[in-house]
Write a protein that binds this DNA or RNA. Structure first.
Lengths: 203, 203, 203, 203
DNA sequence: TATGAATGAGATTTCATTCAT
DNA sequence: AATGAATGAAATCTCATTCAT
């Protein structure tokens, strides 16, 4: 389907993770192949053994790192039975824990920053990540409405609201947190934001 | 040929707006001075008459474009009397309309993308823009709690949730909308998101 | 004879003297028209009213400033009668005093620095300045030999030795003196150097 | 095509010697990196592998080429025993032969031309080269006075006179000789100049 | 005449990519 | 496979010169 293939060796993955960190931090253009090589403890030439160009490295990286994560969350809830309120909380928090642990927190920032430079990747991301997570959340809300936990709301729209915070918080964590003197943690923000979405603020 | 027009006063702003569009679209590093010059209908050299370097242009631009907008919203609500629910909606929508009209929609994306390259600007933005808008929203929520419109919620936190959506939507508008086939408008998203925050989704 | 014509107004001379100072200090390439204009208290455009290009300004400057000085020294000794030893001393010292007073100390450095960039000027300088001063000095030595003051020496060669010091000291004064911590004055150096040339150091 | 030769060790010196020739001939500002690269048979980029900037190349060049030469002359006379008159002649001529052979004839001109642009290098040159050579010459004169070969003269001053000619002749050789139609050779000039300094011209 | 904003050719420097080792 | 010296196209920036005012 795509020309970006998986690779089994250690080297390419190390290069990819080095590239991810730097692309997220500095953006695609400002990241030098030399920096990636140094961070991955290889030489510049070695990067070119595994990736034919900087663009190819970027694209491969996004595809390879993103695709496996997507189904993880889907699988997580497939088997779940019980309160949709709890599930909503769990899914949101779990999503964060998972991508944080895999070092992928920066991907949303990266996609948004480089959207116009890599339209095909952005499209892929919108359809295969954003829409699928939205669908997961919407399904929870639908189920909750069916079982009487939630009132009648537009599930897609509510899902978007929740997602928008998840994405925003991941970008805040990467880009703004260090300039924002208030000791807040993303996990807390997510929980409290779900609270508000669930309960509203009106009396 | 026909380019030799002396317009000392208009040039700097024209260059700045051209730069803004390109920086937002492509990022700082990927934007070429030549592109900025072309878009502003001047020669490369002219850019350097008004801005000593690309970095200086970037910084000046962010400061000059952002500062005047900040107090606008503050002034807007200073005189307001009436329902805080309505005010919350109005402020959110008005914020969007104002920055959209001034062509500044891209600033949040830009700040987040270039945060580590321009830490002083990022800090300035966090303190002078994010925190001030948060304070405005928090004050509305506090007033609404006082006058009995809202239940007892953490006003700062609720403000953050609303703000996170405002910012996320502005980035979505700039970067992802064109890849997201659903004809949604930011204005609608904002209104509906405020609805959810106000009413919650629980029955 | 040359295309570099004299000008009567004040402006051109002011520009020329400003240019001289800067060319001597920084060299031709490193001197900016803007700096010359600023030092002469005019605008960049004004420089181009009087001189068609930077090269033309340089050439005009050298010719106009040098030519009048050359005959001055020649005239000075034409009428002299008396000891050639004293005359030799007087001529050397007088030469320095004159060019110092006219602010032309830097010309030799300038010619030597820019020799290959302006071959015609260099040739002119070698023939019209160096050779003529050499001839003046050689004539004094010849006269001194004739009247028994000096022993039989090669007059041209002896003139060269004296001249080499005069030129070297003028360059030292301009370029090295400030880095040479010894409070020496060019006038003293010249006198003492003439002494040595006249008396030798052998017992 | 045939340029891809890896010569990590030879390159820096080749670039430095190419730079020396051009800096001497045209001055620092007028010398283009491209010219240096071409003359050293490398690409522009290669120059920047070894030297971080044009200024750095200039400074490194002056320091690296000058330092080794300084002690050479000092060593040369350390062991000498015999007539100081002969030694004086030998040292002067030998100095010329040595720097001529190493292609460093142009350094004095370069230092004097660029003195104000590179004050630290100029200071270094004055102290580590000019003053040391002066000291060498002064010591010879002192020794000659002690052993009765020379009359009582100021040794420092006499050294300066000799040195001024050495330096002047090296600049003349580089800049003016080709415009000075008289077939003189620097070696002859130096010998004859020492003659005059030793014997004086007075009867 | 005088000005200085505007131009654009050309300089310095960077860096993705190539390829001899 | 791995390296990093070498390349050269392209970027940033400079500045002599032009020309509308």
């Amino acid at each position: 389907m795509h020309k970006w293939k998986r690779r089994k060796d250690e080297r390419p993955l190390e290069i990819m993770m080095a590239a991810l960190d730097l692309f997220v931090q500095k953006g695609f253009s400002a990241t030098k192949i030399d920096d990636i090589a140094k961070r991955a403890n290889v030489s510049k030439g070695t990067v070119y053994i595994y990736y034919s160009s900087k663009e190819n490295l970027f694209k491969t990286m996004v595809y390879e790192l993103m695709v496996p994560k997507i189904s993880e969350v889907e699988d997580y809830i497939a088997t779940y039975k019980g309160s949709q309120i709890k599930l909503l909380r769990m899914v949101a928090v779990q999503w964060w824990v998972t991508i944080k642990a895999s070092g992928l927190t920066g991907i949303p920032k990266l996609i948004i920053s480089e959207a116009d430079k890599f339209p095909d990747i952005t499209k892929f991301y919108v359809i295969e990540v954003i829409h699928r997570i939205q669908a997961i959340l919407a399904n929870i809300i639908k189920a909750g409405t069916t079982n009487g936990e939630f009132r009648e709301v537009n599930p897609i729209l509510s899902a978007r609201v929740i997602l928008s915070s998840l994405v925003y918080f991941s970008m805040w964590d990467i880009s703004l947190k260090k300039y924002d003197q208030n000791g807040l943690k993303v996990e807390d923000l997510i929980e409290q934001q779900i609270d508000i979405v669930i309960n509203g603020i009106i009396r």
